[in-house]
Amino acid sequence: MSAARFLPGLAALLLGAVLARAVELTLGFNHLLVAIALGFVLANAVGVPDRLEPGINTHKLWLGAGIVLMGASLTLETILEVGGLVLLVVVGVTTLTILVVELLARNVFGLADHMGSLLAAGSGICGVSAVVAVAGAIRAREEQIAYAAATVLLFDAITIVVYPLIGDLLGLSDVVFGVWAGVSMFSTGPVVAVGFAHSEVAGQWATMAKLSRNALIGAVVIAYASYYARSGSAGRPSLRTLWDEFPKFVLGFLVLVALASAGVFSSAQQASIENAYNWLFVLAFVGLGTEIQLAELRSTGLTPALVVLLALVVASTVSLVVLSMLFGA
């Protein structure tokens, strides 16, 4: 396998990142949203050429690396200040979302049990990754996985546009907007993008809330596997699953939070690390934009989309009200 096959796509990501930053500097549009728009236009207007795909598909690697580096601009003190409350909100909203999707899917719209569970995991935890992880544990069918993944991607595309508009319209504070996006939007990339598009602080809180939510994936996979194992439609879950599904880059993020809290970095080093993660995020978001493909979104079933829409409205409204009461609008 040659490393050279990644170069054209990486060059495209880099070009998109520089262009997005240039648009921000000249026209004032947010660079992260411009980066997503550039990727979206490439994928939907001309299509991603085959030779660019290997390099562009590395975008999740850069997003993870950016999140690791973000740890250096936070301290334990900042996190502990409101972190406990945020963690409670994360667990509460995740549980609420999963329960509402399961209830609507099974009892109101009559979807198959497996389909409801995939939608619940995708909406409640971390988007397509959660759909795939739970699908493996409950032995869902291929077309159920495809429908659930397309539904999650549809709402990723919608929330990237709608959340910043609502945030500006309601004049939400950085902490409230960031945590709100982190607990109620679906996939990690869009959460980080809208958070940082709002402000630096909102981006940090959005990412931390989302990482806490992602860390619940192992427990949710085990819970689903146990439930379906009783009906004989899944294998037995194991503790190993917890580790396998845990997003390991969170560990790198925590190490950098600890080092920054211990005062290991000078202010010049911290500024460079911050600039590095800003570049990594723009790179990642050009790639993320290419994943929003209109043709795929059209394949979303109406009923799954309705179930997820209703659950999103409930989770989003409840979390916004609770966060506004806890931290002020």
Partner: peptide, 11 residues
């Protein structure tokens, strides 16, 4: 694993 690759890039 990709997560560890991200940690390696960060480190």
């Amino acid at each position: 694993e990709r997560d560890w690759q991200s940690v390696a890039v960060g480190a």
